[in-house]
Write a protein that binds this DNA or RNA. Structure first.
Lengths: 121, 121
DNA sequence: ACAAGTGTATTAAATGTCTTAATACAGTTA
DNA sequence: TAACTGTATTAAGACATTTAATACACTTGT
């Protein structure tokens, strides 16, 4: 389900959260679907249960999953996270484009980047 | 010359390097111009000389400055870094736009982001 | 009621990175 | 020669991440 990258310098809990988020955002995990238990996923990833716990807590905080004590974690409906994700992505794009601009990248070049990415099907 | 942001969670040496890089990229520091000495900049920023030293080492590694032992650090000619910076920025933009795309952002929305950033003068 | 599985919380220890500090050494300049 | 440059090393502290070992509360199925 998930493969961790130990060359990545970001914390493991963030990596886990991000990878699950991507699965959810792209439909690899559907609303209502049950996630692995904290302990099972920890075993799967050879990671401490606390690490998974933190990842799940972050995901719930952002609306991607719903946690029910004693039962487990379930993927939330799109309505709970889609808007937030979108605005987060837009902010991120703007930040990076701003950096690129101040590094000397021109409008046309930035637009070309975007088009190129969207042409990859 | 530089103001550090202690809320920023990135290492100080990276922050220093990035801020100087921005100054160079935007012409605030011209090729041939002398940078503050390791010790002086450290005093200015209330930071350890080792921290500045690491920042300068990173900048030399990327071609932004030239270090001459005993003399100091000097801004390199554009030829040494401009191309690298540009391709680095373009890669970064593509990565983020790719993330945004897979999160559901549409082409028009991404283009709008870019235009908005470039309209801020 | 019970056992097994869930999430949650806490505390302690280990680890790794960043930063400071104190020095020392080597090259350049006036 | 004195005062400035960059460079290197070692030790210590601070901090975040991760592991580990428990304990507790809730849910499910028998």
């Amino acid at each position: 389900m998930i493969v961790l990258d130990y060359r990545d310098k970001r914390p493991l809990n963030e990596q886990v959260a991000e990878k699950i988020m991507n699965l959810i955002a792209q439909g690899g995990l559907s609303p209502g679907e049950k996630l692995p238990s904290v302990r099972n996923l920890a075993l799967d990833l050879s990671v401490n249960p606390n690490t998974v716990q933190r990842a799940y807590a972050a995901l719930e905080e952002k609306g991607y999953i719903t946690t029910i004590t004693g039962r487990g974690n379930y993927v939330s409906d799109e309505g709970n996270w889609k808007a937030g994700l979108k605005s987060e992505m837009i902010t991120e794009v703007k930040v990076v484009v701003g950096k690129a601009k101040s590094a000397g990248i021109k409008l046309d070049e930035a637009l070309a980047c975007v088009r190129e990415v969207f042409e990859r099907d």
